[in-house]
């Protein structure tokens, strides 16, 4: 499985699943651009890529801001090449019960987790259609399919991501561009470290494999979808959740 010479852009790559994806794609030869919302995050990405001997860069990008997306993509195209692999990974949570949810909590999650797909994919598709090859891989969540109390905003964004994936897959299939999603279950990251011990125990009881997943276990599936081996997979959402939800 080689991604030699391909340029991959991974959003939200400073830590967690995004970091694991950036490293995994890089290990298969891709030039990796990892983005983060802060300069410090971008520096961290540049450092770990360098330490792993991966060609690429860490850049500052706010996926919730049109101007930031346009500026970053221009910089990438001029200095690093046309990205043909896009991994929409950046995401946030703002959990609250529906009856208490604030406008900000709702709109911030939809903007960062869902509107970002529109912005990023639209910006990158031109290069992919010209190349007659492309990969758009978005990171969803098991919550998009099964729901979760306190996460109406997050679940709505993640379910929306799956619909977006299927529609765009139909639209650009004729250009050999595949569009897929990976839906992680509970993965051991900063996002899930916020849970209490009781919540964690309850959760583990629902997972046939009896453990949390590792970020690397998501990254391996993303790398497969990015590879030529997955050329006939499109419009799919691949669950990687230890069996906690099966459809």
């Amino acid at each position: 499985m080689s991604l030699q010479g391909k340029v991959a852009l991974v959003t939200g790559a400073s830590r967690g699943i995004g970091r694991a994806i950036a490293l995994e794609l890089g290990s298969h030869g891709a030039v990796v651009i990892g983005t983060a919302t802060t300069d410090r995050g971008a520096e961290q990405i540049a450092e770990y890529l360098k330490a792993a001997g991966i060609e690429g860069a860490g850049l500052c990008l706010n996926v919730a801001d049109d101007a930031s997306v346009a500026e970053t993509l221009k910089h990438v195209q001029e200095h690093l090449g046309q990205p043909l692999i896009l991994v929409n990974n950046a995401g946030i949570t703002r959990d609250n019960l529906m009856m208490r949810m604030k406008d900000d909590e709702w709109f911030d999650v939809i903007n960062t987790n869902l509107n970002s797909l529109y912005r990023m994919s639209k910006a990158m598709l031109r290069g992919m259609t010209k190349a007659r090859w492309g990969r758009i891989i978005s990171i969803g969540s098991v919550v998009g399919a099964m729901g979760n109390a306190g996460q109406c905003n997050y679940a709505a964004a993640k379910a929306g991501l799956e619909g977006f994936t299927r529609a765009l897959a139909r639209e650009v299939g004729s250009r050999a561009i595949t569009v897929n999603a990976v839906a992680p279950g509970f993965i051991d990251t900063d996002m899930t470290k916020e849970l209490s011990d009781a919540q964690r125990e309850a959760m583990l009881g629902q997972i046939p494999l009896g453990r949390l997943g590792e970020a690397e276990e998501i990254a391996k599936v993303v790398a497969f979808l990015a590879s030529d081996g997955a050329a006939y997979v499109t419009g799919a959402t691949i669950p990687v959740n230890g069996g906690m939800y099966m459809s």
Binding site: R126, T129, K130, E171, V172, S174, R175
Partner: peptide, 11 residues
Amino acid sequence: ADSLDTVELVM
């Protein structure tokens, strides 16, 4: 041409 072709043509 299909609709995607015409968009690409304009580009």
